[in-house]
Design a protein around this nucleic acid. Sequence first.
DNA 1: CTGTTAGCGCGTTCAT
DNA 2: ATGAACGCGCTAACAG
Lengths: 350, 350
Amino acid sequence: MPRPVTIRTVARMAGCSIATVSRVMNGTGPASVEAETRVRAAVAELGFRPSEIGRSLKTLRTRTLGVVIPSLTNPVFASSVAGIEAEARKHGHVLLVTATDYDPGRERELVDTLVAQSVAGLVMTVADPDSNPTLDHLDTAGIPYVLVYNEPQRSGRAAVTVDNAASGRTLTRAFIDKGHARILFVGGRFSSSDRSRLRYRGYALAMREAGLQAAPVLELDYLADVAAHRVALETLFAVQPCPSALICSNDLLALSIAAAVRDMGLRVPQDISVAGFDGISIGRLVSPSLCTIDQPTRLMGERAVQRLFELIACTGLRAVEHLPFRLRLGESIAAAPEDTGIGPLATLTA
Amino acid sequence: MPRPVTIRTVARMAGCSIATVSRVMNGTGPASVEAETRVRAAVAELGFRPSEIGRSLKTLRTRTLGVVIPSLTNPVFASSVAGIEAEARKHGHVLLVTATDYDPGRERELVDTLVAQSVAGLVMTVADPDSNPTLDHLDTAGIPYVLVYNEPQRSGRAAVTVDNAASGRTLTRAFIDKGHARILFVGGRFSSSDRSRLRYRGYALAMREAGLQAAPVLELDYLADVAAHRVALETLFAVQPCPSALICSNDLLALSIAAAVRDMGLRVPQDISVAGFDGISIGRLVSPSLCTIDQPTRLMGERAVQRLFELIACTGLRAVEHLPFRLRLGESIAAAPEDTGIGPLATLTA
DNA sequence: CTGTTAGCGCGTTCAT
DNA sequence: ATGAACGCGCTAACAG
């Protein structure tokens, strides 16, 4: 393998010392025009590019950022990573990307792996941003990180997110304004998503504000298939009146729930309205287009990297930054049908 | 920052030399039970983890793989990266992920960046796998890589893909079998995707075999929005009969085209059938569910990594490996409506 | 079985 | 303006 082209190779060809080569390449220190010319010629000829490893070992820091997310196959995370990658590249950094596959227990292992790679900092989306030993460890180790999507309630942790509770409230209000009363919140497992929890909280608040009774969340695995989701819905509807609206804790789940509803022979939105969160772009393409909370997903990734660099430069704040969200009504939401059923979900508390 | 815990710190605490620590950690060479115990205790106490940088500098290789793809926001690539990441992690490797944003000119720059990071190898999806200076460079530099999705026609390049031409033929036949004759192929820019080109080739072959005339591809930017796609379709249909079926070169484009068709007041599939390629999972959730060519996307990523490690170990073959695809009919394909229009697209050549 | 030592590729003093 | 020498964290070869 013809690959031993090091700084020494260049120095030899340019007829100078490695120090001069280093100075020319990094623009540090003085160098005669003549020497610089010869060095640049040699560099071009050899196609030399300094090894990041050698550089890192010396400077004790890398141009590498670590990324930890639950999964790449959820467009939401993929899109935030796209933003992270673009912004990192702008700053001459590369990304080490890892996924927990929704197993919070793997967070620590992945972080350790990335730390062993001497990453300059981390961008993460974790299951629980408040009570999290892994983040505690990063804090004490002094390794900078910024959370994305997570919304830590106690301060001291840098995060870029939207106000999830407020978005849940906004979305729920849209349904209430359209006359819905029997609104069910369908969520992914709370244990693996603080977003889901907070969005439910917003839902519950909006319901209470409207004098309606918030139903308990229907918690299910959002990665399961349509058939499983259908079974879950049918099981629930067997013991209580069918809701007129389903608010799902994310768009992928909403698409699956909508499919399950159709499988049950019901129409979306005429019989049941369905909505999600995240604003994945595919939601605009499907029919009926998905009612959702639009989020600047890619921008969130970019902002996270910007703030990470601020933290690295010790000019950053460890605070939660909220980016604006926007209600996208779409076609999967309709006015509530004539309300006939009376039952737990429909009980007016006022 | 309390972060100077090196192999020396451990040696000091364990009361031995750094060599012993290294031997214990790597399981290389002998070590007394007593020494090993003390070392392990110190390692646990300090939370020591050897720096990959130091190790790499010495061994001249890393446990890092580079990934170059067009974009993370296309579920197809995201899903293959998910497979790549999982398989790499199994082998104790991490991933440096970069995206060209569909700009082939950026391939070289990204590869250089990754090579400067001394990646052990690369997994890539490029615009043109045959005439590609960047790949030539990797070949001469002796840096192992495996292509995913790309299907190099001339040999000498390792790739994991499906038979794109065959899949195009299979999908087109399905339409012909359902009585379609006016079938239009809608493709992303050929210049940025050999898959698109090869799928069109399969389409053209199937048409010819059936005695039908293959229409020229309608080439458009698959990242454009629905409105732009609608304009493109309307412009074309203004000068020639409306086709009864649209075969799109990938699923994301197919979803957008289906939306555009609906915007035009036509029904899918009653008025026009629509199909795509790739088998993205969301295609199963939408209504009508998407007719597509199912591909083992994630598996392709995993296989690519397996083969990359074979190449690194010099036991691998630089050949194209085809994984099986499967026609998924879905609901977006229907029997051809009564054929009334006669025009360029409908001309029978037989 | 263990400690000492020589680099790996680079940036950075310190002399010159 | 330039070069020699050192050390970053680690592994491996060798000496003991």
